[in-house]
Design a binder for these strands. Structure first.
Length: 172
DNA sequence: CCCTGATTCGC
DNA sequence: GCGAATCAGG
């Protein structure tokens, strides 16, 4: 039995993923012979990668991966399937804490209606029923222009917690 | 060795 | 589109 991704399952996947559940945990909860690889694969296909709520571990994409090369026969020298892979595309590692730090209007998207090209900036408590997403057109990465500015902060001036708190405070 | 997500690529 | 295999890291 191949577990097709029904809307129900996709919805559950989105919910759990954005709640901060790990891929393996989600796979276990979904059951039906779904592996964590399947979950991760689906997450990426949905454009949900780079979630805003990291789990317990801080292990995301810490460093750039040159990607794997299993048994790649030298097909053709000039066959770049992914141009982006060559460039160190700046990706948001961890956005500011969304919980209790969002003083914006409620998002227009819910976990069920959130599309692949909608801003995935979380608004509110993920465990709350009022939890929503910005939902505007995703411009830069998974966020809209406005939120991309926050997520893609080039760097935060070092100076300890005080500086960090001050930096984040500019957006709340 | 446990875990995490990311990516590629055959299907 | 799907996901196993693989990679890279904590």
């Amino acid at each position: 039995m191949t577990a097709g991704w029904t809307e129900d399952r996709v919805g559950a996947l989105k919910k759990l993923w954005l709640e901060g559940q790990s891929a393996s945990q989600i796979a276990k909860q979904l059951g039906g012979g779904v592996t964590r690889n399947a979950v991760i694969g689906k997450v990426h296909r949905l454009g949900l990668s780079g979630r805003a709520t990291p789990s317990q571990p801080a292990r995301a994409a810490t460093t750039f991966r040159p990607a794997r090369t299993r048994t790649t026969p030298p097909v053709q020298p000039s066959a770049p399937r992914r141009i982006e892979a060559a460039a160190p595309a700046p990706r948001p590692v961890v956005p500011p804490p969304p919980i209790a730090a969002v003083a914006e209007l409620p998002g227009t998207a819910t976990v069920m209606t959130l599309g692949a090209h909608m801003c995935k900036w979380p608004i509110g408590d993920p465990s709350s029923t009022e939890f929503s997403f910005c939902g505007r057109r995703a411009s830069e990465g998974v966020y809209c222009v406005e939120h991309a500015r926050v997520a893609y902060q080039p760097q935060i001036k070092r100076g300890g917690k005080e500086e960090l708190a001050r930096s984040l405070r500019r957006y709340i």
